[in-house]
Design a binder for these strands. Sequence first.
DNA 1: CTCCGAAATGAGTGATTACTCACTCTAATT
DNA 2: AATTAGAGTGAGTAATCACTCATTTCGGAG
Lengths: 215, 215
Amino acid sequence: MIEEELMLQQLFDEDKLTDKQKKIITAAIETFSEKGYAASSTSEIAKKAGVAEGTIFRHYKTKKDLLVSIVAPLMTKFIAPLVVKDFNKVLDREYETVEEFLRATIENRRDLLIRMLPVVKIMLQEIPFQPELRAQFFDLVVKNIFNSVEKVIKGYQEKGLLIDMPPESIARLTITNILGFLFSRYILFPQLEWDDELEIERTIQFIMHGLGKKD
Amino acid sequence: MIEEELMLQQLFDEDKLTDKQKKIITAAIETFSEKGYAASSTSEIAKKAGVAEGTIFRHYKTKKDLLVSIVAPLMTKFIAPLVVKDFNKVLDREYETVEEFLRATIENRRDLLIRMLPVVKIMLQEIPFQPELRAQFFDLVVKNIFNSVEKVIKGYQEKGLLIDMPPESIARLTITNILGFLFSRYILFPQLEWDDELEIERTIQFIMHGLGKKD
DNA sequence: CTCCGAAATGAGTGATTACTCACTCTAATT
DNA sequence: AATTAGAGTGAGTAATCACTCATTTCGGAG
């Protein structure tokens, strides 16, 4: 809660947005996430934000501009740093094993990731159809994350804790499993009963016994 | 190509559709897949199908009815059987190791899965927003697949080839990695250069050394 | 050929869409 | 008190939307 407020606050502050603008963004995130971008109307967003429809277009030239204005800064300022944060601790040998590192990384960010789900949902939804967003996503998020993750991987490989598979493949497989869990848990089957801690532990063990070198 | 035609043929035959209806379905799949359901207009689909707009509504009461008519039968008649097909061969001991089984399963279905991508894309797109589709998807696809996959898993567990993790977790992790590869390869980053065979092999090895019991 | 029912049509419907614009309001500056 | 700039407004607009329906076309039976 605190961190989410900080995130939005940070996003709001930097551009010195008015109250109405904040309400528009909040309402837009909610609406886009619930119904999808194309199925959301600007009149509905305006109504939900308690604002005249014209106010939206005063600040955002087009509807698509509103979408990009929401997703783009979150990709640059938030998601990439969130995922990459504290990776230097690994290099400082704060985590001796990969398990520890994975566990700390996932547990650390889980609550925050859950609260980001609306925006993540929007991104997942729209990236296939918005070339502009896809390009940004690739440049800002994917490249950064893969770069950082690969550094960490190489570090552990040098310690002999990971097999010699190319780092980009290890990164792909690791990220796939973390996102796969979160996607199953919170988007596909939120209605099922989940033992989160247990399932995270299984995911980590699965990743490790797939990647961990046996001496 | 042949199998895809067979698939559509089978779908078409059962309901004795006219030429125009086939054209409508083909055009709808193409349009929905490219632009998403909400952003696709019935007039555009009609034009692409070379048909009057009224003809669409003669056969499908609403636009959503058209969507469901495309996705639902493909889920029941096609996707579930496709994934589950030949699983009995495992129980008949045709594949002695899990690797062999995984490799055969993935290689077997890859081409077909690639050609199904338009429909898969539509499903991924709309399932979060269409409760009707989500319920069908869950009943018809997920339950079937998990049931069959769990049987196979239990078989291999009895042979001592898989660890003792609960079958539903093993199923989740395995399916996650197969879908994760296909999703990365064909939807997220089709523009990257991929060595498909190699990456499939790595995925299998990753899955196995995560799940395979070390004696 | 005649007839008939289904298939197909496309102009037309009201509703909704994204977006505009002339205008008011507010608050800070001079 | 006068001026000004920008935030906010909401009625209005053309375009587009999903959908309808009176009419025409088509294909096979008698």
